[in-house]
Design a protein around this nucleic acid. Structure first.
Lengths: 192, 192
DNA sequence: GAGGTTGACCTAACGCTGTTAGGTGTACGC
DNA sequence: GCGTACACCTAACAGCGTTAGGTCAACCTC
């Protein structure tokens, strides 16, 4: 049996992370303090340092977690559909993923936290997400690196506009299918 | 003659604003303190409050200034060219504008500063930028609100990816012409 | 079961942040 | 030349992330 101690430790880590997510959603990605997180789990701020080496380490764990969630989403994309439907679904799921949790989106894709950059381990997860994206696009016949870059610009652009300028509406989400059609018309016409 | 005092006051405001921009470019949009700005202009932090009501007011003045610069850029777009060339030039200038000064871009288009939202006066400037954009797109025959939204998503997406993921290269800037062609092929084919 | 160790948590404190209060001297308008 | 208004200062506040050092209970070993 793995140490009861170790399990308890992991559970407390989880509790801290959950509290951080909760506060980030309530007050904005950078709108919370360690003292608040500590209060949320019934501790004082310095005690958190037994679980995370710094506030940045908490952001890093959140980054890894968000990436893992997106990775799971990418793996759940159905493989047997029509390529157009496939990409439409993928784009829509991505934008919904972003809109559903704006702080998570900002942490993963915008460089919003002042000193923060993901650790190599966490960044590797983000790279793997990109790898899955490449695979999905390849299923639809889109393989060039330029096309992948254009895709990321397009879908993150839609997500950014939606989150920043119409957080409670669907003004840009509604454009996703149209944008995918535009993209595919252009990329599949000149397959190179 | 307008008060020498008033002129001197305005000059000091400028000096403070320039120092804030300089520090933002050096250390990131939110990576500077009032004490640093004050030191830069030979004062102590509390003295800045004679010129700006808060740090947020400095951000607001920066927001207004950035918007004015973008407005000037929009007004400089040549009106007599071929519509495709026009939009290509406009998109390229926009992305270059963003890449040239990432903190300015983040201030104007990402919601990066924790508590900050532009004042109504500053926001009006940003709205005017959008108005100019609509006019430019109309020159090329693009008039629907959905098409304008798709345009903003596309060009801000390119800019975001460029600034966030390849700040010193041209990986996404190089896609601007291609993206504009893709956009126009789609929007002009179905003109309604 | 007693003893020693380890780890969970605490208080106190550091240097930093934006901001306010209150004081001093000087440059200006009359 | 005088009185005022302004430019700037120091001191201080509460809050921030973080470190140092201490206390107490839970666990492992005998």
């Amino acid at each position: 049996m793995t140490d009861r101690r170790a399990r308890r430790h992991e559970a407390t880590r989880r509790e801290i992370l959950d509290a951080a997510w909760r506060l980030a959603r309530e007050r904005g990605l950078t709108g919370w303090s360690l003292r608040e997180v500590a209060a949320e789990v019934g501790m004082r701020a310095p005690s958190l340092y037994g679980y995370f080496r710094s506030k940045e380490a908490i952001y890093d764990a959140m980054f890894a977690e968000g990436s893992a969630q997106l990775l799971a989403l990418a793996d759940a994309v159905p493989r047997e559909a029509d390529p157009v439907d496939l990409l439409r679904a993928a784009a829509r799921e991505f934008v919904d993923f972003c809109v559903a949790d704006p702080p998570r989106y900002q942490l993963l894709f915008l460089r919003v936290v002042p000193g923060f950059a993901p650790s190599p381990a966490s960044y590797a997860l983000a790279e793997e997400v990109l790898e899955r994206l490449r695979a999905i696009l390849a299923l639809a016949g889109v393989t060039s690196e330029r096309a992948v870059d254009l895709w990321t610009a397009l879908v993150t652009g839609l997500a950014t506009q939606q989150v920043s300028n119409d957080p409670d509406g669907t003004r840009w989400s509604d454009l996703v299918d149209h944008a995918v059609d535009m993209f595919l018309a252009s990329e599949l016409a000149t397959p190179r």
